[in-house]
Design a binder for these strands. Sequence first.
DNA 1: TCTCGGTTCGTAAACGATTACAAGAACGTT
DNA 2: AACGTTCTTGTAATCGTTTACGAACCGAGA
Lengths: 359, 359
Amino acid sequence: MVRSTLADVARGAGVSVASVSRVLNGLPASIATRDRVREVAHSLGYAPDLAARSLKIRRTEQISVVIDDLANPAYVSMMQGAEAVLRDAGYRIQFSSIGSDSDLGLGTALHAVSRGYADGLIICPLRMNSELVETLRHAPIPVVVIGGLPRGTAIDNVVTDSRLGVNLAMDHLHQLGRRRIAFIDGPLGTNPGDRRLEGYRSAVERLGLPDEDGLRRLTTEFSYAKGAAAAADLIVNSQFDALLAANDMMAIGAMHAIARAGLRVPHRVAVVGIDDSEMCLYSSPPLTSVSLGSRHRGKIAARLLLRRLARPDAPIKRVREAPRLVARDSTSARDFTGADDSTSARDSTGARAKRRGQT
Amino acid sequence: MVRSTLADVARGAGVSVASVSRVLNGLPASIATRDRVREVAHSLGYAPDLAARSLKIRRTEQISVVIDDLANPAYVSMMQGAEAVLRDAGYRIQFSSIGSDSDLGLGTALHAVSRGYADGLIICPLRMNSELVETLRHAPIPVVVIGGLPRGTAIDNVVTDSRLGVNLAMDHLHQLGRRRIAFIDGPLGTNPGDRRLEGYRSAVERLGLPDEDGLRRLTTEFSYAKGAAAAADLIVNSQFDALLAANDMMAIGAMHAIARAGLRVPHRVAVVGIDDSEMCLYSSPPLTSVSLGSRHRGKIAARLLLRRLARPDAPIKRVREAPRLVARDSTSARDFTGADDSTSARDSTGARAKRRGQT
DNA sequence: TCTCGGTTCGTAAACGATTACAAGAACGTT
DNA sequence: AACGTTCTTGTAATCGTTTACGAACCGAGA
């Protein structure tokens, strides 16, 4: 099917292209031409060429959304949130995941953006370095970042307080009587990796918890497998009655490793994840997690972008999304009698199992 | 930062716009102009206006990918697969999820496509009706469908044999000695819903299994919650020693409902899902599932589209992706001693638990 | 009938790139 | 020195819209 143009419609309706354009854009025209043009346009299956339109109106009506990794449900949620808002505002979404091929992906994605196929950009980078900040600052289109930025950077962004989130989790565990709280982090040098470690450190200090290297593990990826491996390692080399992982996938991996080692969750080890993704409901036991409002952050980012598109000189805005602990069975309080020597992860399950009757 | 145009570069380099364009597109030019133009272009931060370029070269270098629902991991996998291939081929991805707001979403998505902002379309519709087929057949750009099409439809597509997939699952359960196999389907009228029910029916007949309405449940959504609710209902009203759900989310919901009812998986009820999404690894027990190669289908779809873009008159092609059973613990054979009256789902767990020692 | 707001419409100039064409430059050959 | 080739370059047309501008038209008031 060959595409017809304004000129075709104009010829068919016996009017000028200007009239056709006006009718199709809802500008005033006589009833007669209006109906005639619409009829012909419809019968010809006319659809405007968006490239030509964009060229003329100086807008693409597209927003570019760049996330790191589609495999991470937190990013998917952000996309969902952003998409809903942007679509309602009449924008299409141009999507890229910059994936693990860090440089290549990011480079092309941003280079491409600066080549002007989008009116705005929403980006949630795993790693935020000064080079990236510069690139974004000089982008020819409005940019909204989901995630932290150096103080004073003139870019709208929406942040969540990962540090606080981690502290909420630690408080929760602490209130449940857990004292030896292990922590599995993702790679340092990434935004979440760094912030979450800071949070853990501050909570350990604030709550007077044991501060041992042996309770901390760094992994190279925020993945199920890395979480499981780190937990397995912790079980062999350390003693802990609770475990916090830097995201839900790692937490669930850790829960499985713990279960495989014959330890029960939450009785013996309470587990908390971060992101409150849907998988928390699906795991067993359901995973307690810190919600960072991914979907909502996606929405807010989209709204910030729309705001800036409408008022390019509006003051720079940073929106905070407060973290929130969502308690589920993986930290349920029942069956835990408090921290003592027998909570060593090396214990056999037998002793703990017997004790269950007491509560 | 204001965008500069070809003319700006031309002025700066003291040459014509044609020369600039040629240099930037790698066409032959003298060393001197080449260097000069590149230098100026770089210092001006020149980037071509893609709208203007598209208008002239009659290509947008964008592919539209339309899926139903980002919340479904199977779709996300498809996107990942497609994205990888398309990006390597130099295309950007314009993404829309048509979501649950069926008509609205689909309508706008497709209408938008026909408005020519993409060179091709990959679509994986949940429901395929004749109206949609017509729309796609008359699309002004090449289309690839992921999913079934009416026989003889002149559209490239990649299909998987859901029916066969269900039969693989049923064979697997049958070989494990399960006889009363319950089935939880998604909504009829959807492609997967219909195909999977057909598969179940044919397997029941082929294997001589009990064919009872009470063993089948239809839900309104392929979701965790619906799966759980349907399973809870089955447990109360029916007796079964195995359960097949139309996708992994439903299967995991069902597993949880089963666990809540005090029945053990797989000992008492073996559970199988469909899609082999990552969550199968994360559930406990890990879920046996039928892989339909979502990611691979995404890749194939992208390749089919690239092929057609290269050769618009190539013969219509339909690629099949074979389903494959991935056995995990939710159907592990140990502990099951065969179907007999005591396998009623109404049994208390006690009897079954005692029996475990025998194997 | 003439004039005067107000509509309605067509002409034509953009928007920023690509590219056919022809002209000019450079060079080798005879 | 004249000619033919090959390279390099600029001019200008073009892609399909949108929209400023002014012409034509219409009915009403004088």
